[in-house]
């Protein structure tokens, strides 16, 4: 490995050795993929991932500042509380913490030369990622299935969709919808939640002719849900991407462990740094969205 030639163009311009395959000529001498540079003390991928994470901090920072602006700018008493399932949020937090530990334990296993244990730890990491995404999708499904119906007489029904008649059509004013929910006394968010917690839920069938407005709890329902779906959706994409990278290194790229174990271990460190960042973002998302 040439450590005195950091610039890739010089490698490409170097006299080629015709008895080696092209990819080998191009890539085998890329410096500092394992060995640290003399000036930074770091291998290149580590500098790269930290620069990437710096940009990620700014991405989520922009969304967090949007959250603060929306929340502080909301009229007193209108910001929803208790709309999300705290138990599911807590479980997801614990799941992500477990996955962070298994990632560092897998890296430590490779440092100790124990490839089998590494694979077990990373399998648990992948299971945790799937569990997290599964719970998140359950939460999303619940919100998309949760409706608020304002009737023509001014009364509001809040509940989960049970069924729609076959001729249900809001535009043609035909059919009916049944929700498992309750009548809401007031439209303000505070009163709404208070009544929701104590109200007895039952099946309420509403003819479409009596519906003035019907909307589910998707991102369009309120600024709170808009920022909730944006933040958690972007975070879920990061969980998915991180899990995909971990899986690829765990499975298809595992052969590198036999040929270049140090480089393979570094890949685990790099993917781990990304994974911990994803965990770190959730550490703030959980209290901000679920508890406060």
């Amino acid at each position: 490995m040439n450590t005195a030639c950091p610039a890739t163009p010089r490698i490409l311009l170097r006299k080629t050795n015709l008895d080696k395959p092209l990819w080998e000529k191009l890539f085998m001498d890329i410096p500092y993929i394992v060995k640290p540079r003399e000036d930074t003390g770091l291998y290149n991928a580590k500098v790269g991932i930290w620069l990437f994470l710096a940009s990620e901090v700014m991405l989520f920072g922009a969304l967090f500042s949007s959250y603060i602006l929306l929340r502080v700018g909301a009229a007193a008493g209108t910001w929803p509380h208790g709309l999300l399932n705290v138990a599911l949020g807590t479980i997801n937090t614990l799941v992500l913490i477990c996955s962070s530990v298994t990632v560092v334990m897998s890296w430590a296993s490779l440092k100790l030369g124990n490839f089998g244990r590494y694979r077990i730890y990373q399998s648990i990491t992948l299971l945790c990622a799937l569990t997290f995404l599964g719970i998140k999708s359950v939460e999303y499904h619940d919100k998309f299935n949760h409706y608020e119906v304002i009737q023509t007489d001014g009364r509001i029904v809040d509940g989960h969709l049970v069924e729609r008649t076959k001729d249900f059509d809001l535009a043609k004013k035909t059919g009916a919808v049944t929700l498992l929910g309750h009548f809401v006394e007031k439209t303000e968010a505070g009163a709404h939640e208070a009544t929701a917690k104590h109200a007895e839920h039952s099946n309420i069938t509403i003819p479409v002719a009596q519906i003035k407005k019907m909307e589910n709890y998707g991102p369009w329902h309120s600024t709170y849900l808009a920022i909730y779906f944006t933040l958690t959706g972007l975070h879920a994409l990061h969980v998915f991407a991180g899990a995909a990278v971990i899986f690829v290194i765990w499975g298809p790229l595992a052969g590198l462990w036999k040929t270049d174990p140090a480089r393979y271990t570094n890949r685990i460190e790099i993917s781990g740094l990304f994974w911990h960042f994803v965990d770190l973002v959730w550490i703030f998302l959980f209290p901000v969205l679920y508890l406060l």
């Binding site: 930074t40 003390g41 770091l42 580590k46 500098v47 930290w50 620069l51 710096a54 901090v57 700014m58």
Partner: peptide, 12 residues
């Protein structure tokens, strides 16, 4: 960690 990482994070 190394100084360079601290430098990147300080700027961030």
């Amino acid at each position: 960690e190394r100084k360079m990482i601290y430098g990147i994070l300080t700027a961030t």
